[in-house]
Design a protein around this nucleic acid. Sequence first.
DNA 1: CATGAATGAGCTTTCATTCAT
DNA 2: TATGAATGAAAGCTCATTCAT
Lengths: 190, 190, 190, 190
Amino acid sequence: MKEKVNDKYTALLQATLTLVNNHGFHDTPMSKIAKLAGVSPATIYLYFENKQDLINKLYLEVKASFCSYALQGYSSELPVKKGFEVIWYNIAEYKLNKVEEAMFLSQCDNTPMIDEASVQEGLKHLQPLLDLWERGKKEGIIKSISPYLLYAYTVYPLSFLLAMHVKGICKVTEVDRLEAFQAAWDSIKV
Amino acid sequence: MKEKVNDKYTALLQATLTLVNNHGFHDTPMSKIAKLAGVSPATIYLYFENKQDLINKLYLEVKASFCSYALQGYSSELPVKKGFEVIWYNIAEYKLNKVEEAMFLSQCDNTPMIDEASVQEGLKHLQPLLDLWERGKKEGIIKSISPYLLYAYTVYPLSFLLAMHVKGICKVTEVDRLEAFQAAWDSIKV
Amino acid sequence: MKEKVNDKYTALLQATLTLVNNHGFHDTPMSKIAKLAGVSPATIYLYFENKQDLINKLYLEVKASFCSYALQGYSSELPVKKGFEVIWYNIAEYKLNKVEEAMFLSQCDNTPMIDEASVQEGLKHLQPLLDLWERGKKEGIIKSISPYLLYAYTVYPLSFLLAMHVKGICKVTEVDRLEAFQAAWDSIKV
Amino acid sequence: MKEKVNDKYTALLQATLTLVNNHGFHDTPMSKIAKLAGVSPATIYLYFENKQDLINKLYLEVKASFCSYALQGYSSELPVKKGFEVIWYNIAEYKLNKVEEAMFLSQCDNTPMIDEASVQEGLKHLQPLLDLWERGKKEGIIKSISPYLLYAYTVYPLSFLLAMHVKGICKVTEVDRLEAFQAAWDSIKV
DNA sequence: CATGAATGAGCTTTCATTCAT
DNA sequence: TATGAATGAAAGCTCATTCAT
């Protein structure tokens, strides 16, 4: 029974993800979400307070999954460059494999569709990466620049590559990934 | 007389820019656009076919202004690094000075709200930058990697910094800009 | 429960009939139809795709009822004149008793407000009358002229009398009906 | 100059005729009428008070032209049958040659789009036909039935034939016209 | 838990009409 | 006389949300 509940909850999130990706938050009526999830419109309101709550919860869910994916296999005991490599490749893989989720996050981050509170909430999980950078700076391996700059030049560019990838404008090959990592590392290494 | 026409057209674009930035394409009713522009809702339809046309035209207008701003003072006869510097700083300045326009472009590029045709149309203007990169590669100054990678690691990070700037999370100082340029250049220089 | 559904569907058709008769297809806003039917405007769209669909469905409904009324008590085994008499009087009675429906049909037939497809659909039911005429011709009782002429001179004139009747210009008495039938028959009998 | 005025007045009536025939009174915006007539929307209001006035004036104009056409070559000194024949054929010819006007009249007569006053006004011109019938009755040539019946069975059927003709369902040939006249006459002759 | 039916509020868009020129 | 620009009012229609079942 709990399964079933979870089923519908998940189905609704998944349906929302797909539809918002393809049509935007606007032009994604609750009725269509319900239809795609195979439930009645009224059922949505058993699991979510309203449309905003639905999108917020989806955002947090996806953001959390992204962060946990990013930190797979990482340990704070790895050397700085190796640790960075692990996380960077995780993120790259996430963006290429979980295209829907990644696109959704991009849309959320560039749109006033998510409550500010939820955005803040979603940022908490990447602390290990910030810690790693801090360590790198202390060890003189990474430039002494703001973490926002570090993020902007290592992780954020992947969003652009994803977007191009999705639009079919450029396929991202193994080689590209190597080059991309190199560029990311070159931009922040001392 | 022509002035007045232009007035309303421009006022409508400006109103749309502001409202879409603050509320998204959805939750920006035509009636509010009209009110902010100081005209009747019906008047919008004298200048634009419909809501989609309005947003498309705004996108093209802003994109064109962005590109022209980016190329100010640039000449294909400048040395590669100098030329790159000129364009990069132009873009950085645009993003910091024309915050509304820059945010709008970000939203457009991460949202299915603009017609694909208009997106294609908007890309035409940055050819000089692509040419510059090509030259840099030939001269052995810039890495031989895809222009998408080059864009992702030099121009695109500025969008992230802009977003942080706008949210008040980090102010972008002169120093930051220097560091940011350095990171951009490091990531693509040979 | 099914009753209730049917209730609203029927109420909407009835309201449309009345309003379109009194004001024409134009000047009959959906909101007024809803109000007269005692439902919310949005409810209309649960039962009909759009305004055109509503009017089409109403047309088909009324046309079908008209045809079935016209053929009451008729059998292809009746002698030609008797059979004709039965149908003709049925139609006359329909036009005088179901004034609203009859007027609506007149309006539909002289106005580009019904889809051509629906018009065609509505014509299917009067085949028995055509068959009767065919038989009459073979038996040498009815003139060998096109069925359109036969219709024009027997059934169609009733529409005019109805219109006069409705406008209060002339009351159609028993005697009139006798005379009218005589005129109809005289015009087509050999 | 008066010519030019008249030009626009006529052009507006003609444009209205065409558009109302094809789309109905609704779905015929003033702006389209203006465009088809080659004038500005505002110009319409120099010649007509409003949309209703425009349609009323058109109705009266067309009705008058119809009546005058119907009475061409008729004289009250012709014998009854001959006189009737003249008028009837005139009307038949009008309906086949001036299809647009005839259709428009049909639409007006079956639709609440014309003011009742204008309808009354339009009927005045057919007095000679009524007089003819009266004479026919006195001479014992025509049945002693109401003029409405006489009209319904002689003139009105032509509207149906016209409609079929216009829809391409049946072409009206010379022979048809002969048969039609015969039917008309048979229905009212003693 | 789950829903189909229902809706009020609000959307985009149209249009008859006006008015400064 | 003639107009293009402008608009208030209202049209058709949608949608997030509710509620009786």
